[in-house]
């Protein structure tokens, strides 16, 4: 069997806060095969963005291994890491704040090419930038434009071109369409899918939009308070969600169809604090199936059917 391109093992990221240790990411493990998309879903504060950033070491993980292409990124020295970043890139959520307002489209896209010394002459760099602009659907006349002159969709295309500039194998997409209107969102999703097909890219796709994750992912991982509560192939998890949190999350998606909103499971209460979380299942305080064991013992992620993993005492 082919080795997965990314193999994350027991990733943890704790932040020190005045009130205690904040468990942002708490023992997350997953693998992604070459050319596939893993969707990471969850609500605000569940640790999905932190996970994405830890993979690239934009945030230093507290513990854990990140095996990318056979090497452990978590152990790399700065120089090695810089070289490795040629292969792993990120697209950020907010195309308004993730671009340097003083740089033109050309400068922004060219930066990675220059830093990594992929091309040496100015003509080559220009040629490459124009090629990238063409790939992501930016008109050539925008070459010298500044971000403030462009709308959200075009800015996000710059973000994508910048990521593609160094020919990466893996792109972490952190809510890349959440700030965009639906008609523009659809344009960007189609672009990302086309690029994946043409270039064999692997995506870690972080989003809270379940319609989007269903559309773009091969596999879905559901996070709750820093932990992986359920993971399965996209079709399987949408057809057959097992964890009570996943079930209520999916049932809360408003569907754009008359009378489509069947029985919704409305969960009570709110996400508890990630600071010094108590033992047991993190979802237990809101769970309608709570049993005594749930507040005493951590549920372990177990494979309930082939390729379908759930961390819930109901299934153990």
């Amino acid at each position: 069997m082919e080795q997965p391109i990314l193999d994350v093992r027991n990733l943890r990221k704790y932040f020190k806060t005045p009130r205690g240790l904040l468990h942002a990411v708490d023992d997350i493990s997953f693998t992604i095969d070459h050319g596939k998309t893993l969707g990471i879903v969850g609500e605000s504060g569940c640790g999905k963005s932190t996970t994405g950033r830890c993979i690239l070491r934009l945030i230093e993980p507290t513990t854990g291994e990140i095996w990318f292409d056979g090497e452990n990124v978590a152990q790399m020295k700065t120089r090695q890491l810089r070289a490795k970043r040629l292969d792993m890139q990120i697209i950020f959520q907010d195309p308004f704040s993730s671009l340097n307002p003083r740089n033109t489209v050309m400068q922004t896209i060219a930066e990675g090419v220059r830093v990594q010394k992929i091309h040496s002459t100015e003509t080559e760099i220009q040629k490459r930038v124009l090629e990238l602009m063409d790939i992501v659907g930016l008109a050539e006349r925008l070459y010298n434009s500044y971000p403030h002159e462009l709308d959200g969709g075009r800015r996000q295309r710059i973000g994508i071109a910048r990521a593609l500039a160094v020919n990466p194998k893996l792109i972490v997409c952190d809510e890349p369409v959440s700030a965009l209107d639906v008609s523009i969102q659809a344009q960007i999703l189609n672009l990302l899918k086309d690029l994946q097909e043409e270039m064999g890219l692997t995506y870690v796709f972080i989003t809270h939009n379940l319609g989007v994750v269903n559309h773009i992912s091969d596999e879905v991982l559901v996070m709750y308070l820093g932990q992986n509560v359920e993971q399965a192939h996209t079709e399987e998890i949408f057809r057959n969600p097992k964890h009570p949190y996943t079930q209520s999350l999916f049932s809360a998606i408003p569907v754009a169809k008359v009378g489509a909103n069947k029985e919704r499971i409305i969960i009570k209460g709110e996400v508890s604090s990630p600071i010094n979380p108590p033992a047991g299942c993190r979802f237990a305080p809101r769970c309608q199936h709570r049993m005594p064991i749930c507040t005493q013992q951590d549920p372990v992620l177990t494979e309930v059917t082939s390729g379908h993993f759930v961390a819930c005492h109901l299934y153990s």
Binding site: Q187, L210, N214
Partner: peptide, 22 residues
């Protein structure tokens, strides 16, 4: 166009048909 831009939960492989332009 708005409806065509939405990813469908039932047919996840269907290609989105965004409204062109701005």
């Amino acid at each position: 166009g708005l409806f065509n831009s939405l990813p469908s939960i039932e047919d996840r492989t269907a290609r989105l048909r965004p409204i062109p332009g701005l």
